[in-house]
Design a protein around this nucleic acid. Structure first.
Length: 575
DNA sequence: GGGGGAGCCCCCTTCAATGATACCATTGA
């Protein structure tokens, strides 16, 4: 991720929100939103571009280009500052609440002077909102539910946000003289879908230079604690980072201890006790006499406990200790096992980059194959037509094998309607190499109907992958209500793969569901659902989920050679 | 505000669900 681009994206998005809240021209707000997205997904650093260079980016014209230049020259944009001065920051936070949009946010601000989520919740409890024009009891209940959903995340941050911050900090600290090792640990290393705080570990003889460096990073906003053993800071994005420096000979024990999980560590320490040993962040010691028996590497620590090294993504006390003791730990799938992405978009629908650029970027990643799966017509806002998708197919065929001999699959992402039917009839679907099918609408049809429609999609002989199967958005929308066991069984029975969608706000399926689906014998596709060049790299987060679900390459269809994949994609059709 | 075809103007993502309201505004995919 290019940091300056991210900053501009956030700034333009904020301005778009402010325009919407103040009731400004809706097209203007949309123009800023579009430009924000385009710059966020632009692969080159925009801070080096002049007005002419910026205007090369689709959706960026003279006015926005000049604002971007102003931002990099002065650190601020005058009109944005002026608008900010009129609307308290808390009002903008209100529109993050599901079911509360810009219009209603402005109403509660103007009529009740509410400018924070807390004040809003209080006003609802005092039944004050229901008297406002356009509000009622239902609206109150929905907003309260939305607030609860938001707070369920409990201040946890998305895996990808934590990862980007952590990798920057690790890179900075690694440059300091005397650094023998530096890495992130904790739930981030275990690749949990959200992360509470970032734990960073350094192995060095002297701790002070690292502790000082952390407090002085440009991204550090606040120092929470600053000591010899531990320093905690909060970044400008509000993420807490804990740094610990251990002696080099304690590196392995430190990483083992600070990676967790807590449940996993209770198990490892219990094993140690049974062996007459004591395990701490400093090492594995004899209980009697206190002699150190292992600490330098994680491998050494696990080995002394009679265990193989356990991948961090498995360390949740979900059977990995028992499997390790039996020598039956799975060889979990890794990023390098993946031979191709099976769910991606282009600017033919809502992607940012043209087909050629997406294909070239995929080839750069060393893929053997790559599927292009733009949206189908029933997602009306994307304006897909038969003609457009067929023209794209021609283009895909002409690019096939041209980049490092990477093979291209032409596909689509279909919409599963309320009855389980999809956008195109069988004879048209037959022309695709791969069909992903997803639920994009009618989320509240009830458990029976939801289960039935997804199962019916599985039974469609042309549908190969169920896209983002639960359709959850982390912190925003719970997964759909369906009998997932029935869905997973249908996938296994019909030869339909379940997607592990690697978009950081989806991570769908999640680890628990993957474990259940695997027990039904279902197969999986780890895909990025990329809407820009940069999204192709999200694969690592999907792999994290797959590992947490104990998947091996055998379980994941896009680790397979193309010939085997093609056989799978034919399902049991005779054509 | 951006973009395209003209020289300043016009168009720009559609549709369903929901809830408040009495026929419509808001939200989200």
């Amino acid at each position: 991720m290019v940091r300056p681009n991210e900053e501009v994206e956030a700034l333009l998005q904020e301005y778009a929100d402010l325009i919407a809240i103040t009731g400004g021209d809706a097209f203007k707000a949309r123009a800023y939103e579009k430009a924000a997205r385009a710059i966020g997904g632009y692969p080159a650093d925009v801070s080096h571009l002049d007005v002419a260079g910026l205007r090369e980016i689709p959706g960026v014209g003279r006015s926005i280009a000049e604002k971007v230049v102003e931002y990099f020259r002065t650190g601020r944009v005058t009109v944005v500052e002026e608008t900010r001065a009129r609307i308290p920051a808390g009002v903008r936070q209100l529109i993050a609440i599901p079911t509360l949009g810009p219009r209603k946010a402005m109403t509660v601000y103007e009529d009740l002077h509410i400018s924070s989520v807390g004040e809003l919740a209080d006003a609802i409890r005092a039944e004050k909102l229901r008297d406002l024009k356009g509000f009622g009891e239902k609206t109150e209940a929905n907003i309260l539910h939305g607030i609860a959903l938001m707070q369920q995340a409990g201040g946890r941050i998305p895996l990808s946000t934590a990862m980007e911050s952590a990798e920057e900090i690790v890179a900075e600290l690694s440059r300091i003289a005397g650094c023998e090792h530096c890495a992130y640990a904790g739930s981030l290393r275990r690749m949990r879908e959200t992360v509470g705080d970032i734990d960073i570990l350094v192995a060095a003889d002297r701790s002070a230079p690292f502790m000082d460096a952390l407090t002085e990073l440009p991204s550090t906003a606040e120092v929470i604690a600053h000591g010899e053993k531990k320093t905690s800071i909060r970044t400008v994005k509000g993420v807490q980072v804990d740094l610990r420096v251990v002696r080099p000979d304690s590196w392995g024990a430190g990483m083992q201890y600070f990676t967790g999980s807590k449940a996993h560590n209770i198990r490892t320490r219990t094993i140690a006790v049974r062996l007459g040993l004591k395990l701490s962040e400093y090492g594995l010691f004899e209980t009697e006499g206190g002699e150190r028996v292992a600490s330098r590497s994680e491998d050494e620590v696990y080995s002394r406990l009679g265990l193989p090294w356990i991948p961090p993504t498995l360390r949740e006390d979900r059977g990995e200790i028992e499997a390790g003791l039996r020598g039956e730990l799975p060889e979990v799938v890794t990023e390098s096992d993946i031979r191709g992405d099976l769910h991606t978009h282009t600017d033919l629908t809502d992607g940012l980059a043209p087909l050629e650029e997406m294909v070239a970027a995929a080839a750069e990643r060393g893929y053997a194959y790559y599927a292009v799966t733009d949206h189908a017509p029933n997602l009306y806002m994307q304006r897909m037509t038969d003609e457009k998708i067929l023209a794209q197919r021609e283009q895909v065929r002409s690019l096939d094998g041209r980049h490092h001999r990477m093979r291209l699959l032409h596909g689509t992402e279909l919409n599963i309607d309320a009855d389980g039917a999809v956008d195109w009839p069988d004879d048209f679907l037959q022309g695709f190499d791969i069909c992903v099918a997803s639920v994009h609408s009618h989320f509240n049809v009830g458990r029976r109907a939801m289960t039935r429609r997804i199962v019916r999609a599985c039974e469609n002989p042309h549908i190969n992958v169920i896209g983002h199967p639960t359709t959850r958005l982390i912190g925003k929308r719970p997964g759909v209500d369906a009998d997932l066991d029935e869905v997973f069984a249908a996938c296994a029975r019909t030869g339909t793969a379940l997607e592990i969608n690697a978009q950081p706000d989806r991570l769908d399926l999640g680890d628990e569901d993957i474990l259940r689906a695997r027990s039904h014998g279902a197969k999986f596709a780890v895909s990025t659902d990329a809407h820009s060049l940069l999204h192709l790299a999200y694969l690592r987060y999907g792999i994290g989920m797959a590992q947490r679900g104990w998947l091996t390459p055998e379980d994941v269809i896009n680790t397979w050679p193309l010939a085997r994949l093609r056989r799978f994609l034919r399902k049991d059709r005779a054509d």
